[in-house]
């Protein structure tokens, strides 16, 4: 046995426990989900003959096509809004704030990240409720005369999402911006580019890795999230994860829930395939 073979064996042996755990409790259940998605629920039991019925249901029943479309809409709005809020924030932090203040400010900005996810959505409910902080503030200041409906709408879901992902995306964009050598921007200015041109043709393109990674993470995490749409959206509009949970908890239709999960995995996989080559925070 060559020494390389020996170290290959040792390396795999040491990774063994982690591999075993991931195989048993991740790969196997995922395989099982795929298998169940081809079964059918008959009464209270599972009919294990392979069928495409669940997938047919998903694409023929308006409830599910609407859920998929709503999910994609909500998540795309979330991605765009988070980037629009986070980019200027990260830019100011990276270029206009003295270096020694940058890290403390960044840590402060992601602090609410560490509130419990359920509790954070609940706090937004307190803010957006009919008699909540925003409505009362606007009524006291005379902006509106009667409370407006904010909670239990798509807007509430988007606000909850944008809040969470602004923190995340600020981090990835900040990381990209600080990797751009200052000399690049200086050179552009020296060669006569206006500040706007410098930004559009030098800074923005070079910060794209952070934008892409942030957008991808936001997409993946938001489209699979059940909590925010459930608490803030309030069941007026069904998103994909809520549709899955509904099958699991109310209907007990596990094959349909499994098929919807496979659909979710396929959507995430497709987006990953498109972005895979660009998903690295380091510049090449």
């Amino acid at each position: 046995m060559t020494s390389h073979e020996k170290s290959t064996r040792k390396g795999w042996a040491l990774s063994g426990p982690a591999l075993l755990w991931t195989s048993l409790f991740f790969l196997a259940p995922m395989g099982f989900v795929v298998a169940v998605s081809f079964w059918r629920r008959v009464g209270g039991t599972l009919d294990r003959t392979l069928t495409l019925d669940n997938y047919r249901t998903i694409f023929e029943d308006d409830v599910f096509t609407t859920a998929l479309r709503s999910s994609l809409e909500v998540v795309l709005i979330t991605v765009v809004a988070s980037l629009l809020v986070a980019y200027p924030f990260a830019y100011i932090l990276a270029y206009r704030v003295p270096a020694r203040w940058q890290r403390p400010l960044l840590i402060l900005a992601v602090l609410p990240f560490w509130t419990s996810y359920v509790v954070r959505s609940y706090s937004w409910l307190l803010v957006l409720a009919k008699n909540g902080v925003i409505n009362q503030a606007m009524m006291t200041s005379g902006l509106i005369s009667s409370p407006i409906t904010l909670a239990n709408t798509r807007l509430a879901t988007v606000i909850g999402f944008v809040h969470f992902f602004t923190m995340l995306v600020s981090l990835t964009i900040y990381a990209s911006l600080t990797q751009i050598p200052e000399s690049y921007r200086k050179a552009a200015r020296d060669l006569g580019a206006s500040p706007v041109a410098t930004f559009l043709r030098v800074t923005l393109p070079l910060s794209m890795p952070g934008v892409v990674v942030g957008a991808f993470l936001t997409f993946v995490l938001a489209i699979g999230d059940f909590i925010t749409p459930q608490i803030l959206g309030g069941g007026n509009e069904l998103l994909l994860p809520q549709a899955i949970m509904l099958q699991v908890q109310r209907r007990g239709d596990f094959p349909l829930a499994a098929a919807l999960s496979v659909l979710l995995l396929v959507v995430v996989g497709a987006v990953y395939a498109v972005f895979a080559r660009r998903l690295s925070l380091e510049r090449r």
Partner: peptide, 9 residues
């Protein structure tokens, strides 16, 4: 993979 799908699996 979404936590929801892992949990379901």
């Amino acid at each position: 993979v979404s936590y929801l799908v892992i949990g379901l699996g």
